[in-house]
Design a protein around this nucleic acid. Structure first.
Lengths: 143, 143
DNA sequence: GCTCAGATACGAACACTTCGCATCTGCAAA
DNA sequence: TTTGCAGATGCGAAGTGTTCGTATCTGAGC
């Protein structure tokens, strides 16, 4: 098992929470993949191994894991949000192909500092993705 | 009538599109308000003057106006997107109180330039709002 | 093993948005 | 001013992503 996933499971145990099949499977999946999976995508993957795990359980599990700081979700513009193991960094999404690019947090640091100074606004850069067009789709196109 | 709204109506006419009650009313509303209205909010306002205008017409009208470059929509993290007359600038939304802050585009210019140089990614800063916490809700709280 | 708080499966409900289709209406031409 | 009709609308139904209620089940401490 991926060591980040392993760590997350340990946290669960250490906090006296139950390590259920759904939780373990979802954490392992998120730890093993570099894809940016939506709740439905997660449910689909998870159901290969455990067909009984319901989408609503996936949502509830993700919500809990997020509350406990183990998982984060990111809102894409249109369509479903995607989830990944906690590792706060911003994302940008190509409006044309939907590809998600992980961006190191330091790229946003000047903006975060500026927004704090000028407006007293504390940006949470990891919560919403920014939209745009990737290298391959750089000519202007509709969203 | 607000001169931006007036301009938008002129553009409609100039492009040979019909100036219907729904279009005129929605454009005037968006021109007259500084609120950040959702489609439903727009429908509600519009229905005071014209109770027959349907929500689906509001959506369709906004979609058309957007296609023609007169209106833009912005995705908040959770909940409905909001609409305003075209004036591409970024928005930040307080996760606690939901307040929307309009930010001058130049605040984002360095980030846009950096993303272009380093990743070949052309940001569309106006399409998604960034989330965070405003001056009044600056201590860490859940989303 | 036994117990039970906490977690789950399931489906129904929900919020926001889109769609299909019959009807209506702006507006250009007669 | 009336007419014709493509384009716009009203209406309801469907779609999509997410949340909720409830009966049932299960992990983990005893």
């Amino acid at each position: 098992m991926n060591h980040i996933a392993e760590g997350a499971i340990d946290v669960l145990r250490a906090e006296g929470r139950r390590v259920t099949t759904a939780r373990r499977t979802i954490i392992e999946l998120l730890g093993a993949t570099h894809e940016h999976l939506t709740a439905e995508g997660i449910a689909e993957h998870v159901q290969h191994a455990h067909p009984e795990i319901h989408v609503s359980t996936v949502y509830r599990t993700l919500e809990s894991l997020e509350e406990w700081g183990l998982v984060e979700h990111v809102h894409r513009g249109h369509g479903a949000a995607f989830f990944h193991l906690a590792a706060s960094h911003p994302h940008v999404v190509c409006e044309v192909c939907g590809r998600v690019l992980d961006v190191p947090a330091q790229e946003f640091a000047p903006l975060v500092a500026r927004m704090r100074e000028a407006y007293g606004f504390e940006l949470d850069i990891a919560h919403n993705a920014l939209m745009g067009r990737c290298r391959e789709h750089n000519s202007r196109q509709a969203c």
